[in-house]
Each structure stands twice: as structure tokens, then as C-alpha cells.
Write a protein that binds this DNA or RNA. Structure first.
Lengths: 113, 113
DNA sequence: CAAAGATACCTTGACAGGCGAGGTATCTTG
DNA sequence: CAAGATACCTCGCCTGTCAAGGTATCTTTG
């Protein structure tokens, strides 16, 4: 969790969409996957996660359905829509752009003095 | 301004500090410099800028003083403090880390399926 | 010289996303 | 059976961004 909230802000949606690209999943698993991927360096807070699901579903980027688990706690599965896929690629492109811009602005450049 | 606010969020302070590294400056000029650097792709909104100045000053990262212009509108100059310098380098390091993390999480990786 | 535009500062209030804190229910393990 | 993991959820606060509005001075232009 060493990464501050404001730096990750705005990426939550894209991160979730990225995980749904290869197949349907449910909240708890997505969160686990993220922790694994970043070696515990970052975790979506549950409240953040579920807020994001609502937002993404309202936007038509994902849809959800209850799993038919015979055992264990019930799970709500999420699936990415074609629109969601498009959104993902658009958001990634935006990130690439933003990255360059931020990089430029954070530089400690001393040119001309 | 093609870059969305949420992606830049949290970088405002670092951007300002970066600009003050090479010398004192005032709000209007800093904003102009940012627009030039990004070829108009991004501009800090004034309200954001001045909020940030207050925040940075309260944190002891910068201090301000009124310029003694004999002509033109009055200018409030800002100067970075040693603590501010430290903060800048720390924030840059955080950005480097965050970047890697975000990159990892946004990947469209299909490994293992 | 008046109007328009640039320079330069500032505040208020709304909004959105993140998240701490709290809650529910089920299954597994010691 | 208690503890911990799995799995879901909501409420209300906090913080950073920014649209909209304001002030004052100087320069340019018709």
C-alpha cells in the first residue's frame, strides 16, 4: 500500500477492466489478483472496489450476475462488455499520453540557465 | 487540456515544486511555463494552482513574498524551501514507483490461458 | 480617450473518487 | 465453538479539482 491514493486515482476503473479482459471474475478475486501482481504493494480498498463496480456497470462497461456456487459465500461475477473493451483501450492510450506529459512536467530540467 | 484531471491528480504539487527548483517564480508565470512545456496539452486551472500554493506553503515546502514591481500588476513570488526540495525528490521517487505499479496493473497480459 | 485584452491575483461552492468504519452471511480449521 | 478466511455491501467523511465569479493594473487599438 506504499503507493499513495492520489497517484492511483483515476486508474481504478482501468485496472478492473484490465482484469476482466481475460475472463469473468468476482470482487474478492480481482482484489487478490491485484495484490499478487504488485507483491502486496498495492491493494484496492473494498469500498473503492465496489464503488467502481457500480460506476462501471452504470457506464455499461461491465455487467454482473450472481454465481451459482453450491458451497461457500455467494459471489457476484462481473463480465466486460464490448463497450468496456473499447473503454479499456482508450483509457490505456490516455494513460500513455498522461505519462509522457507528467514525465515532462516533473523533470528537474535546468536548460538555459 | 486533453489530459484528464484524475490522471494528473496528485501531481500538481510536484509539478509546482519542480518549477521552483531552478528559481523563484510567480503563479501566472508558472502556469504559462507548464502550458509551454506541454505545448498547450495541459494547463493547471487557476483555482487549482492557488489552492496548491496555499497547501504547499502550509506544509512548509514553499514560502511567498510580494514582488516590488514598479509597473504592471503586483506579483506574489514563491520560493522553494530545503524541506520542499526534499519533498520534491521524495515525490518523484514515489511517482517512479507508482508508474511501475500502474503499468503492471494496466497490462493486458494473457499469461497462462 | 474609451474599450478590449493581457497580465496578475484571489475566493466560494459544488463535485467526484477514495476509503475508514461498520455491517452481513457462509465455510473451514484448530 | 471460536477464529479466521471468504465474500458481499453501505454510509459518511476527506481531499483535490475546477467552474464561476471577482479585483486591479497596464497595453494596444480603433
Amino acid at each position: 500500500m506504499s503507493i499513495t491514493a492520489d497517484l492511483i486515482r483515476g486508474h481504478t476503473d482501468t485496472i478492473i477492466l484490465a482484469h476482466l479482459l481475460h475472463g469473468n471474475s468476482y470482487g474478492y478475486q480481482i482484489n487478490k489478483a491485484i495484490q499478487d501482481k504488485t507483491a502486496g504493494q498495492y491493494e484496492l480498498k473494498e469500498a473503492t472496489l465496489y464503488t467502481a463496480f457500480r460506476r462501471l456497470e452504470a457506464a455499461g462497461y461491465i455487467y454482473s450476475y450472481w454465481g451459482d456456487e453450491m458451497t461457500g459465500a455467494r459471489r457476484r461475477y462481473y463480465s466486460i462488455t464490448p463497450t468496456g473493451r473499447e473503454a479499456y483501450f482508450r483509457m490505456r492510450a490516455e494513460w500513455e499520453e498522461a505519462k509522457t506529459t507528467i514525465e515532462k512536467l516533473l523533470e528537474d530540467n535546468d536548460h538555459g540557465r
